[in-house]
Design a binder for these strands. Structure first.
Lengths: 225, 225
DNA sequence: CCAAAAGTGTTGACGATACACCCATGT
DNA sequence: ACATGGGTGTATCGTCAACACTTTTGG
C-alpha cells in the first residue's frame, strides 16, 4: 500500500436514504421528485453528497433533514454501491442508510413542501440509476432485522397498541401473523408494559396501549419473531 | 439535491480486506506489515485505494491480489467506515470486504513474500486507525452468516471431511458443537455427498471426504446450524 | 342488536439438545 | 495393545404453528 495519497484518484461520495414509513397498515417509501437535470421528472431516493469535514453518518442525517425536514430519525447503514458506472454522468459512490418511521409522527405538509412524497412499497415509480437495487437490499435487511432483533421499536411512538405493532410486522414481512402466537411471543420476552389507557382510534372496543420497559428492552437475549 | 457534481468535495476511497484463514483448527487473520511511513512498523488490514474506472468489488480483488498474491477469493462487502478523521493523515473512506479461506489452499511462501502474515484471531497485534473496529464488525457478521446461511462453503476445498467442517464452525463460533447433532443437521439438509475416499492426514483411522451437491446446495431453504 | 376489532389457551409436530459407546488404524 | 480421532442413535425438552370463541362498544 503506497500512501502517496495525493496521487490517488478521489471519488464523489453520496449517501442515499431509504426512509420506510408505516401508516394505515401499509409500508411506504419516501422519494423525492427531481425537478432538474439530469434525470428531470424522475423519482429518486433521498440523496446528497458527503462533505469534507463530515462523518458519513452525519452526512446521512443532514441530507435527510435538508430534503425532507425530518430530524432525529434513527438510521442504520445498509451497504455501499460502487460500480464504476452506476451513475452514468459521473462516478459517484453511494452509501445507503435505512430507517423506519411512523408517518403520523412527522409533518406530512412539511415533507410535501420539500417535494418529497410517500409511495406504497409495492407501487413504486421507476427510480433512477441503481436505486431499485438499493430498495431491494434495504428491504431484505429490514426483514432480517425485524425478525431477529429488537428493531421496529426505535421507531415506534412511545405508546402503541399490539394490533398496530402486529400490522407493522405484517407489512414488513409481507405475510399474516397469528394474533395469539404474536402476543404470546412478545409477552414471553417481557419488555412490554401494559398501560391503563386504551386507544380507540382504530376500533370501537379500543386496544390497550403499551410502552417499552427500556431497561429490559435493552437486555434481550433471544429476540425472535 | 443539486447535482453540480464538479463543485462537490471528492474523497479518497479505500477498500480494506479481512481475510480470515482456517488452519489447524484455528481461525487466523491475514495482516500486512507496514514498512513505510506513516505508521511504519505497525500492522494493518490489506488495503488499497479504489481506482477511477474500477468497480468497488473489483478494487477489493485487485488489492488483495496485489498485496498477497491471493486470487479467486470469494469476498463479501461488510460495511463502510466513514468518520471524517478515522485516518488522521487525510480523509479516507474505507469499504471493508471479508472472506474466509483455507490457509492450506494457498501458498504460504507467496503470502510471506508480500510481507503479509497470519495472526491468530485472539492474538492480533495492535492495528492502525480503526482497523480493530473493522475486525470486530467482520467477525460479528461472519458468525451470523455462518449460522444462518450456506456460507463457509464457498471457501471450502472441493473435498473436505466432517471433522474439518465442524472445527471450522467451532473456531468461528467460539464454542464446542456436539458431533452427532452437527452431523445430523448437515445430513438432514441433504447437500453433502459422501465419497469413497478417506483423508488420513489428521487421524489414523481417517475421515471420509465429502463434496457438495451444487444443485441442492444452491436451493437450500432453511439452513441453520 | 349487530358489525368490527380486541382479546385469550391448548394441543400436536418438529427441531434442538443432551448424552456414551464401539470402530479402525498407525505406532 | 493402546492411544487417537472417527463414527453412530435415542430420549427429552422446548419452541413454533395451527386453531375458535368470547368480549366490548359505537352506530
Amino acid at each position: 500500500m503506497n500512501r502517496a495519497y495525493k496521487e490517488v484518484q478521489q471519488i464523489t461520495v453520496a449517501v442515499d436514504c431509504l426512509i420506510f414509513g408505516f401508516n394505515d397498515g401499509k409500508l411506504e417509501l419516501l422519494l423525492v421528485h427531481r425537478g432538474f437535470e439530469p434525470e428531470r421528472d424522475r423519482w429518486s431516493l433521498i440523496g446528497g453528497f458527503v462533505l469534507n469535514e463530515e462523518d458519513l453518518d452525519e452526512a446521512a442525517h443532514r441530507v435527510l433533514s435538508d430534503l425532507t425536514g425530518l430530524d432525529d430519525v434513527y438510521m442504520e447503514q445498509v451497504r455501499t454501491f460502487g460500480k464504476a458506472h452506476r451513475d452514468p454522468y459521473e462516478r459517484v459512490l453511494s452509501v445507503t442508510y435505512s430507517a423506519l418511521v411512523l408517518k403520523k409522527d412527522y409533518n406530512d405538509e412539511l415533507v410535501k413542501s420539500y417535494q418529497a412524497e410517500w409511495f406504497p412499497i409495492d407501487g413504486l415509480p421507476e427510480l433512477i440509476f441503481d436505486h431499485k437495487d438499493m430498495v431491494d437490499s434495504a428491504m431484505q435487511r429490514l426483514r432480517r432485522r425485524i425478525k431477529s432483533g429488537p428493531v421496529g421499536f426505535n421507531l415506534l411512538p412511545k405508546k402503541f397498541t399490539l394490533p398496530q405493532l402486529q400490522k407493522l410486522y405484517e407489512a414488513i414481512l409481507g405475510e399474516e401473523i397469528d394474533k395469539r402466537n404474536f402476543r404470546k411471543k412478545l409477552n414471553s420476552m417481557d419488555f412490554l408494559v401494559k398501560l391503563d389507557e386504551k386507544d380507540k382510534s382504530e376500533s370501537k372496543k379500543g386496544a390497550y396501549l403499551y410502552e417499552l420497559d427500556e431497561e429490559k428492552y435493552n437486555h434481550i437475549k433471544n429476540f425472535n419473531i
